[in-house]
Amino acid sequence: MLVFMAFALALIPALAIAYPFLTRAGRPLLSDEDTTASEVSARWEAAIAGLRTTELEWAVGNLAEEDREWLRERYMTDAALALREMEVGDAEERALMATVEREMKRVRAQAGDGE
């Protein structure tokens, strides 16, 4: 009974450990680069949050008009720079994707020729 239970217990981690190797579905190289949050969008979020906070603090009276103008200018510029960078990034990405697609078409076409 004990031996059986011990086996059953050992089976759980064994399966968990083996699972990623058994289902090698070509996982990508381990990297954080492609995850949703990138540095640019962090900057965008920080700038937008800064704008909101500025408005809130102005509304509750913690902020003088002059300071509010000053802060708005900074945050708007930060946000604009982030936005521009994102657009440029997107454009580059699209160009890259287009290249890849062209390349794949070419390879496929060649393979088709071979058959």
């Binding site: 510029t77 946000a79 604009a80 720079l81």
Partner: peptide, 27 residues
Amino acid sequence: PLSDRERESYFRRIESAMADPGRDERG
């Protein structure tokens, strides 16, 4: 740096994005 034209167009777009009616922090 942002050019004056860029500045104007980006600022306008950010402001319209901020004016999302679902949420205005300052009220």
